[in-house]
């Protein structure tokens, strides 16, 4: 196996209105099998993917928001959310689903997966990646 590379999945679309969010999530879950160093970034309308309280019972679509809670099991532990994008949309971190992962090295302690980052920080993170996927 070649050395681990840094993968970032950028999510810029709201869920449901288009298929980008669901497709992106599926690629992340499938890609996790390759055991690379994976993170996700939520920018622009992509932050809406993590909105709490999604309920599709009246609209006949599949609610795939619970699957984000499984990302920790797939060792996708870093979800960067751009702070400016949240603010432009009148949202705060409290509007997002509380997502966690369990640290095996630390007696399975539950740790938060979502990290709010500024646009400037995110810009730096982009530079660090070996591979970037866009959805």
């Amino acid at each position: 196996m070649s050395q681990t590379r840094k993968f970032m999945y950028i999510n810029r679309h709201a869920p449901y209105g288009t298929v980008y969010a669901l497709e992106g999530l599926e690629v992340v879950l499938i890609g996790a099998a390759f055991e690379q160093d994976v993170c996700m970034a939520f920018i622009g309308d992509g932050v809406f993917q993590l909105k709490q309280g999604q309920d599709t019972t009246d609209s006949g679509m599949k609610n795939f928001s619970p699957a984000y809670r499984a990302l920790g099991d797939y060792e996708v532990n870093r979800l960067y959310v751009e702070r400016e994008s949240l603010e432009e949309r009148g949202l705060t971190e409290a509007d997002l689903m509380p997502l966690t992962w369990e640290d095996e090295e630390d007696d399975w302690a539950e740790k938060p997966s979502i990290q709010l980052v500024s646009r400037a920080q995110l810009s730096g993170l982009l530079e660090e990646q070996d591979v970037i996927f866009n959805f």
């Binding site: 879950l29 996790a32 099998a33 609610n63 619970p66 699957a67 809670r69 499984a70 099991d73 797939y74």
Partner: peptide, 18 residues
């Protein structure tokens, strides 16, 4: 029921162990 996905084998193995 909880996550709306069927887990990959690696994830299943770990979760069953737990």
């Amino acid at each position: 029921d909880e996550y709306q996905i069927a887990p990959a084998v690696r994830v299943l193995t770990k979760a069953i162990g737990k």
